[in-house]
Write a protein that binds this DNA or RNA. Structure first.
Lengths: 115, 115
DNA sequence: GAGATACTAAAGCATATGCTTAACCAATCA
DNA sequence: TGATTGGTTAAGCATATGCTTTAGTATCTC
């Protein structure tokens, strides 16, 4: 495996966990402190911190500490990256279907011309 | 952890691996057999099969065996699911930014009215 | 029927992941 | 100053993941 993960690896990996998606769902509605984020979650604070570390290393979340409270916020650029990858695949898939459609159409027409 | 993964978990998890994304990138251009998919990849056939199993259990890929060859193809519905989740988050984030903008605008106006 | 081909099944292994608990530090409050 | 609050570090543990190799089992092809 050997840690050479691409940004896309890290982003999808980050989104693959329900707790982390819950954190993202919370953070898109505005910034929050660590303990604020942890409150509704049914796990220890260190566990939440580890999820936040994953989100931060993927670039989905940024944070800064003022006094003793760390405030976390979304970085939407990384969300776009993941979305774009998926969107690109769907576009290719659609154009593949189109070509298939054209091909089938051609077959049908040629069939019509045969005797 | 205890295997109770949601479809979204499985989909993002499936997309988190570069080999599996490569398989998806290949398959959006049309169906392919297992060995055809394995050919360009630098790993054993069983390893590729395991990746395909992950993709299939996530719903991103379907396959059927005819004779001795198994043909794999994309199921785009599952791609949409992942895309929709991300898109939803981006929409919420945008509307959050809008509200913030409105709020700042209000502050500015009130500021102008003061003294 | 004897290969070759295409895939599958099983075991094993190294590393990664998702938690926990038990300290610990550093701002803030009383 | 001494307690509280908010966060951090470290260690440990169970399970999951991503491979490997080895040994199959069906299907073709000749």
């Amino acid at each position: 495996m050997l840690n050479q993960s691409s940004p896309l690896d890290l982003t999808f990996q980050a989104l693959a966990d329900p707790t982390r998606r819950a954190l993202v769902e919370r953070l898109v509605r505005g910034p929050a402190s660590v303990s604020e984020l942890a409150r509704p979650l049914d796990m220890s604070l260190p566990a939440v911190m580890q999820h936040l570390a994953v989100l931060e290393s993927s670039g989905l979340v940024r944070s800064e500490k003022v006094g003793r409270v760390r405030t976390c916020r979304i970085d939407a650029a990384q969300l776009s990256l993941a979305e774009q990858w998926i969107n690109q695949r769907r576009l290719e898939w659609a154009s593949c279907l189109d070509r298939l459609g054209d091909y089938l159409e051609t077959l049908k027409n040629n069939d019509g011309e045969e005797s």
